[in-house]
Design a protein around this nucleic acid. Structure first.
Lengths: 233, 233
DNA sequence: AAATCATTAGATGTGTACAACATAGCAAAA
DNA sequence: TTTTGCTATGTTGTACACATCTAATGATTT
């Protein structure tokens, strides 16, 4: 028979995952999406039983998802109180951003993938979406485009540990970003995101992933600076 | 009466953690230790029920620990088969090491902590331990000193996300390292570890954390090079 | 003898009842 | 009015029984 190369990474990536694995992945991504899209803003108290009923499972498999999100710092469970969406302090926020800024340039250093026409098309589409977003700014739209842009960038490295680390720290801060700013800054941030993606698009068009990674770092740094000024720290 | 302050952050670090949290932490560290010390070498099949009985709990809280170790890539569970200690491929191993090499210099860039007399004493003690290890080399002794050295290094940054990332990727490769080499290379690797820690000790003595971090990277790189030569890739 | 299929043992996955715990609300006493 | 303590309620944590799945085993058929 075919002794498959046994390419099993750790948990999720293969199409040949068990029924339990697919269910886990689906629920996990749904809840994480709700957190990062501010459907569950920081401080929200979730109910295990309510979520279990909603997803049509018992508490047991659902808790497995919550444990995972808890280990990733997105949730906190306290017996007798509830499961709360993490609202990290400003200091912790800065620490995560510091690390994100250092990880960004590694995109071009650790197993960078070749930029294909498909990649260019993806960033062109993101640029178009961000253009529309500036015409009708919204917090939800910002999060959607921001998350999609992140994944487009992270997909450019074949180094899975790096990609996972980037993903972990991105989602740790994704939901906090807009909440820390006021609702009145959403329009401005949408314009900033538009400028950011335009820069990305230009770098991708000429196939310069090194420039792309440092543009990423630069815009991340600028975002933190705006946040610090806003919070007056 | 005394209403204790009950300051609880997220999961582990405070002394005032719940009884469930302490139990989780204890079992988690014990099993992780067994994996990294090669008591459970890669490929070992664990039994949830046996472990539950050993630790005096039911399968439910024990599975929470296994889920965590699974999400960290140290275990893999397959229904109907069992829970197996991960034995990652050489390619995945190199990818993790590539990231570890990039993370090492960040020790001196992201919130480095001042090197105190206590730090110097800690590295002096590690140096002494590694000296003894060279006189009586053993795989177990190597792992013990290697893990202790890692924690001494990681403790030098106040950036918790960085520290956690370093810890994650260290334990992902810690148990594979000696296993990939033959038993006949243990003595040589003990000497290499001794040289490594001597370099670290000298850098710590003069308070140069930047030199320390790059020595760390250099020795990590050399370790990978030896492994690649051994495996002939 | 070889191949095929049913059976069986043992593993993880799931559902459910109950325990442990924290908080809010209310009542009673100072 | 304020404080204190109790009770009710809802939450997460735990234990256990059962479902589902895999691999090995042995019987049966070719």
């Amino acid at each position: 028979m075919d002794k498959s190369p046994t390419k099993k990474s750790d948990d999720v990536d293969n199409k040949s995952e068990s029924a339990a694995g697919r269910r886990f992945r689906q629920i996990y991504e749904e809840i994480r999406s709700r957190i990062s899209l501010l459907d569950y803003p920081p401080g929200t108290r979730l109910s295990e039983e309510a979520l279990a009923i909603e997803f049509g499972v018992s508490r047991t498999p659902l808790r497995r998802v919550l444990f995972r999100l808890q280990s990733e710092g997105l949730l906190e469970s306290v017996q007798g109180v509830g499961t709360i969406v993490t609202d990290i302090s400003n200091e912790d926020l800065y620490q995560v951003y510091q690390l994100r800024m250092e990880l960004a340039p590694l995109l071009a250093r650790l197993s960078p993938l070749p930029i294909t026409e498909e990649t260019v098309a993806k960033f062109e589409d993101l640029y178009r979406q961000s253009e529309e977003l500036t015409k009708d700014p919204s917090a939800h739209g910002y999060c959607v485009v921001n998350i999609a842009t992140f994944h487009a960038l992270a997909d450019l490295t074949a180094n899975m540990p790096l990609r996972k680390a980037m993903e972990l720290h991105f989602y740790q801060t994704a939901s906090i970003w807009l909440k820390s700013l006021g609702e009145d800054d959403v329009a401005r941030e949408c314009r900033n995101l538009n400028d950011e993606i335009r820069d990305f698009y230009h770098a991708v068009k000429i196939g310069d992933i090194d420039a792309l990674s440092h543009l990423w770092r630069a815009h991340t740094s600028a975002s933190v600076t705006r946040l610090r000024q806003k919070l007056g720290d």
